[in-house]
Design a binder for these strands. Sequence first.
DNA 1: AATTTATGTCAGTCATGTTGACATATATGC
DNA 2: GCATATATGTCAACATGACTGACATAAATT
Lengths: 185, 185
Amino acid sequence: MTDINSSKRGSPLSSSSLGGDRPRPAKTGGSPLFLRDEELRQAIELLFYAYRDFTGEPDVILAQRDLGRAHHRVIYFVGRYPGMTVSYLLDILKITKQSLSRVLGQLMTEGYIRQDQGQEDRRQRLLTLTEKGEELERLLTETQRKRIARAYRAAGPEAVEGFRDVMLGIISSDEDRARFENRGE
Amino acid sequence: MTDINSSKRGSPLSSSSLGGDRPRPAKTGGSPLFLRDEELRQAIELLFYAYRDFTGEPDVILAQRDLGRAHHRVIYFVGRYPGMTVSYLLDILKITKQSLSRVLGQLMTEGYIRQDQGQEDRRQRLLTLTEKGEELERLLTETQRKRIARAYRAAGPEAVEGFRDVMLGIISSDEDRARFENRGE
DNA sequence: AATTTATGTCAGTCATGTTGACATATATGC
DNA sequence: GCATATATGTCAACATGACTGACATAAATT
């Protein structure tokens, strides 16, 4: 049907556990756009693989506590911005109030997060991690920090700068990009 | 309760739609690890925001066709490796056969993907996009390619190199990293 | 001939997202 | 002070996409 597996190009890579040859990327014709297209597709895939692996380790730890990735995100950001409001969290996560509500409710019931009434604006419920929450946050973030630290160390400071610039460019809004300014103090 | 909103540091950023001051990151004490911790946390957040926005546009297009992100991943990778096997796809996505089965079944029923029996190994079902599938793939990938292209252009070639190196470092396995070798030909 | 591999399928469950409507307390503007 | 807007919470219903575990078939491999 196709000649994908007929090894016309390049040396046959040692057959993996998948059996047979590794599939080859589709060619987009010999057009001058080939390299550019290839480069952009690689970026797409880098994002996919990196994100998949980046979330893999925490997911295991969370599963042991009957929590999911959604809980992780909440714990992470509440740990990051102690005393943050529910609105602010919604704005970061870009999910509905309903979705957050369930997750947040569980985290409070289980004692990972505490709510305090705002002083200036008493409608606000300021979110903070409890001891237990901080402990879990450290555990989860530690795996991700290690992964990033390893990648940063291997790639070097210049690469880190480039990584940061490209990632900022991928983000849609100025508002979100602004979260990365003036942080070193 | 806390003094998070009391604006002790820095100039007050113009209050956003969220009302009130922007929450400030938690300090980790004046330890010498501060910068490193901050740097690593920023990476964690860059991954979160970038991935969230990266998948946002395709999600809208998919929703119009009653498809989800899972369908996108399948369509993308089948388009990338025409004639790929089910096993290979499972290996990339790292999900269960069951999860893939449902999504793949829908895509075939809806006429986005075709299955052909392998010639050498007739147990294999080689996956290929149909015309309709290719059309959707182009539409979806186009939004992501544009996003990446914009980011790459803004950041410059050196940054792109760094981005790539860091992302490769974040990926867990040599097997997956190997997917990025020898592609330019 | 026995075993392994590639694929498919059944049944049930869970996590996490969605919409839309409605309720309450508090803050703010006129 | 009253009207309106905002911050938050809550109810019901639903869709998607993951999961587990078991079992079935055809073809390849040993």
